[in-house]
């Protein structure tokens, strides 16, 4: 892990970087002088605060803005699962362990991102109404927590996880080349995908059918039109400029089906595409 390569890359685009960091760059050098005894997990925290102090930006397209956007989504997910675990009778015993795992992960992501952002982290209380979300998304969904409607809860969980994957994916180019921050974001991204797959597996069991698959087929394969917008563009057939339905599967001799093509690639969403999906819940 070479944190100085990041600093050097930044210096190429920002000649005044040293001035911005000074004397913090020396502090970082001191940090690494602890050598391998410094836990790798601690480095993102140190670097995150370094970048924040240096730039202090709040718009998407920079490290702080990107991570705060991620933090807002993690606040939403953490509160969602915490509420579920605090709603007796909602989650069947068979699925309790899974949601305890998922909730623990989302809360840990919050802690991790807050640690990276330090003083620049947006406060949870800035979200919703003093930190309390509207789980009906402006009365577009039934109040599943009140009615203990597990099926609707699962649909929303399905939407949150698949959308979370899309959000992290869409933000990756904003932190391209940043070994510490991008790698951490990718490491969260794949955890959200694991969650999404498992929630889809739960839904298959509940439905007693083969759907929804653990991977996304076409645009919206969840069976709930209320979350169509969360899956807009997942039916993309073109990757790297190639319409993949024109490629032949060498094994079968047939063209790849649109189902396989859309399942094999998850699609990103931008900040501006994600925001309308989560603002009804109170994300700001």
């Amino acid at each position: 892990m070479n944190i100085f390569s990041i600093i050097e890359e930044l210096e190429k685009v920002d000649p005044e970087l040293n001035d911005r960091f000074s004397p913090r760059r020396d502090a970082i050098k001191s940090l690494t002088s602890y050598g391998s005894k410094v836990a790798l997990a601690a480095l993102p925290f140190a670097l995150g605060s370094l970048f924040n102090k240096a730039y202090g930006q709040t718009t998407v397209g920079d490290v702080t803005g990107t991570l705060n956007f991620a933090l807002k989504l993690e606040y939403l997910e953490a509160a969602f699962y915490n509420t579920a675990l605090n709603t007796p009778g909602l989650i069947p015993a068979a699925d309790l362990a899974a949601f305890q795992t998922i909730a623990a992960h989302e809360n840990a992501h919050v802690t991790f991102l807050k640690g990276v952002l330090g003083a620049n982290a947006v406060a949870q209380t800035s979200q919703g109404t003093a930190g309390v979300y509207d789980w009906t998304a402006g009365n577009t969904l039934p109040n599943y927590f009140v009615t203990k409607d597990y099926n609707t809860f699962l649909v929303v969980a399905n939407a949150f996880e698949d959308t979370g994957v899309r959000a992290y994916k869409g933000q990756a180019p904003n932190i391209i080349g940043n070994q510490i921050v991008l790698t951490a974001a990718l490491n969260i991204h794949s955890v959200e995908a694991r969650h999404a797959a498992h929630i889809r597996t739960i839904r298959r069991k509940i439905n007693g059918t083969a759907l929804p698959k653990s991977w996304i087929t076409g645009a919206n394969d969840t069976g709930s039109t209320a979350i169509n917008a969360n899956f807009a563009g997942e039916d993309n057939l073109i990757q790297a400029g190639i319409d993949l339905t024109t490629l032949t599967n060498p094994l079968t001799g047939a063209k790849f089906s649109s189902s396989i093509v859309t399942e094999a690639f998850d699609e990103p969403l931008t900040y501006n595409q994600i925001l309308p999906l989560v603002t009804p819940f109170g994300v700001k």
Partner: peptide, 9 residues
């Protein structure tokens, strides 16, 4: 990124 999340699934 489009591929890795499918691998995670």
């Amino acid at each position: 990124g489009k591929i890795v999340s499918v691998e995670a699934r």
